[in-house]
Design a protein around this nucleic acid. Structure first.
Lengths: 122, 122
DNA sequence: ACGGTATTTCTAGAATATTCGAAATAGAAA
DNA sequence: TTTCTATTTCGAATATTCTAGAAATACCGT
């Protein structure tokens, strides 16, 4: 991932509706969701507004789309998201341990599911 | 880190000059750099422009500032950057292995210094 | 072909972001 | 206190982003 791709990705994630859509699509899995269903989940936002934001996310490389019948289905691009996390650690933060080791430790410690499954007990 | 903090941070990083400043300050270390020196490093950008972008970065929580003599010294906030990486993995990507495990593996594999120090040899 | 559903594209307006140069502020030095 | 250096703040111009509604496009069932 180069700088321009990262800028586009950060730009895509810097807007509330789009951040929520991203979360929703990650949760939805590789099967993705139709544009209309995503719009419903976003307080029933207008179709043109959805189209605008979904396009921004696609430009940012965070989601992909495919036509399926009369719907257009959007899915999260997991590999791109992984590359963005990696960019943030390696390129942006220069692999600095105070950022990267700390982030990885916090993630592992809290548990990938947020349930403190590895080192902490409830 | 909550959603609004993350949005502010992504917004701060979604601009070329600011992404470069962030990289520069991470490299500079905890000692940071004076606003003027940062401006020099950014193709000698105007002082008001620097002030604007440094303020955006500070609003985004990515850098902190302190007065030192007649200079104002900016430093990267490593803990905030770590929290942003963690947010991206846990909250945004829901701890999804295809994102988080992949990113951590890629980071570890390429080596924090980008020199393939752990599993690949040159 | 026709009508209905799903989504995008177009047009326009409002809100934000970015940049610049000039003026204001804060501290250091004489 | 005056002057010099470093930086921010202000005011205005331009550019970009976001939103909405209407029209256009694509597919499906009849």
């Amino acid at each position: 991932m180069n700088e321009n791709q990262a800028l586009a990705a950060f730009s895509a994630l810097s807007q509330e509706t789009r951040l929520k859509i991203t979360r929703l699509l990650v949760t939805a899995g590789p099967g993705g969701m139709a544009a209309g269903a995503i719009g419903q989940a976003m307080d029933g936002a207008s179709s043109s507004r959805m189209s605008f934001h979904l396009n921004q996310l696609e430009q940012g490389g965070l989601v992909t789309s495919r036509r399926e019948g009369r719907s257009i289905v959007y899915s999260a691009d997991y590999s791109m998201l992984a590359k963005l996390v990696e960019f943030l650690m390696r390129d942006c933060c220069q692999g600095h341990p105070a950022v990267c080791d700390a982030a990885i430790a916090a993630f592992a410690c809290g548990g990938p599911d947020g349930n403190a499954s590895r080192s902490k007990q409830a």
